[in-house]
Computed example of a mutant assay.
Amino acid sequence: MSNGVPSPATKHQGDLYKATKMRAGPCVGLFEDVHSVFLQILPSFMTNFRFLSGASRAIAPPVANQGGTFGSARLIISHHVSGGHTMTPPTASDRSAFGKANPHALATILEASETRRIISATDIYDISGIKLWAGNQPVSTSLQRKLLDRELRQPLETSLVAEDGVSAASLALAFEELLGGGSALLPLLQPHAQRLASLIKGLTLHPVAQLLLTAAQTARPEHYAHAVAAMALNGALMVAGGGDDAAVRLALLCGLLHDVGEMYIGPEHGEAEADRDLDFASYQQLVVHPHVGSLLLAQLTNYPADVARAVAEHHERLDQSGYPNALAGGQMSTQGRL
């Protein structure tokens, strides 16, 4: 802004924010150059993020860390020239996305560790081979100090485990509580409750997903409640659509994990409070969480690629008014449309 006049970049960000927030019909024009849109919106959040477009690659220069930074994360978006959307498999260099502990995720894990048994499953080393934490030891605030600005040999999320964490059984119990709690979702859930309860009990939780869900359950309970509700709704929609057990289980997982990327932004910027009117600063943080969650699931878990893609697409809209890629309904996966 100069002399009180918004710069074109600032105005473009504001227009994109308003269009996405209001869902006021297709806003394709605002997304004609998705590269420039993200280069303008994300510098306050990401460092060293990367865009892939067709056969060409453009590497964004590093930007200074600011509040809400995702450390050394790389944002990966793949667009075919035709406008279609695919998830790009991570390369060896992309695995540095989680090379440093994210301060928001770490703070949430440490808060949860005050009442839950979260331990280091293995020794934790920095990239130079210095041992920072011994295996099989409970985590504490001392770990936070040792991890400050350290590049790690292995992502922290794969080095910790919640021994008394969220399980398929506890998810089934949470589903029962949802059914008995007068939720507005009851008309959709009750016709399929028995089948959903049975399939939830058989869900497999990857240790990374379990760790983050446990941290959310303890330190961000509204986020966990939202995840459980989305899990149930996704499953019910897939059952109603005639999905077999495998498809319903996949839908349950996608719903449960759709907002896992929010663990990597400040809780004040999250969307769990559905009635809250987002300001632009919060929107700048929130807009990137689908890709953070997608990267995490693609790189740190062995879940099917459909899960990571659905998480990346969960804020897209059929009329192309969603974010971050303004995909049309036909460009989205089945799970993403749910």
Rank of each mutant, 00 (worst) to 15 (best):
A19L: 07
M22V: 00
R23A: 15
L30H: 07
F31V: 06
E32W: 11
H35L: 12
V37N: 03
Q40K: 13
Q40C: 03
L42R: 05
P43H: 06
N48K: 08
A55V: 05
A58S: 15
A58N: 13
P61W: 07
P62E: 10
A64D: 10
G68H: 04
S72K: 13
L75M: 11
I76A: 10
I77V: 12
I77N: 08
G83C: 04
G84A: 15
H85W: 12
H85M: 11
T86V: 14
F98S: 09
G99H: 06
A101E: 12
A101W: 03
N102S: 13
H104P: 00
A105G: 13
T108N: 12
T108H: 01
E111R: 12
E111H: 10
E111C: 14
T115G: 05
T115P: 01
I119G: 07
I119P: 09
D123K: 00
I124S: 03
D126M: 04
D126W: 02
S128L: 04
K131D: 00
W133A: 02
W133C: 11
G135P: 10
N136V: 01
Q137M: 05
Q137T: 15
T141H: 08
T141I: 11
S142V: 06
R145L: 12
R145D: 08
R150H: 09
E151M: 09
P155D: 02
E157V: 11
E157G: 12
T158N: 08
V161H: 07
E163R: 09
D164T: 10
D164V: 07
G165A: 05
V166R: 02
V166Y: 00
V166P: 00
S167F: 10
A168V: 04
A168H: 03
A169E: 06
A174Q: 15
A174L: 12
E176F: 00
L178F: 05
L179Q: 13
G181N: 07
G182H: 11
G182K: 06
G182D: 06
L186A: 12
L189E: 05
Q194Y: 01
A197K: 13
L203K: 03
P207K: 11
V208P: 08
L211E: 02
L212I: 02
T214C: 07
A216S: 15
Q217W: 01
A219D: 07
H223W: 15
A229Q: 15
V239M: 10
A240Q: 15
D245Y: 03
A247E: 13
V248P: 02
L253Y: 01
C254D: 06
V260H: 04
M263R: 11
E268I: 12
H269Q: 14
A274D: 08
A274V: 14
F280H: 13
F280G: 07
H289T: 07
P290W: 02
H291M: 14
H291S: 10
L297R: 08
A298S: 13
L300I: 05
N302D: 15
A305I: 09
V307P: 00
V307L: 03
V311F: 04
H314S: 04
R317S: 13
Q320L: 05
N325H: 11
A326P: 07
G330M: 03
M332F: 00
M332Q: 14
S333F: 03
G336E: 01
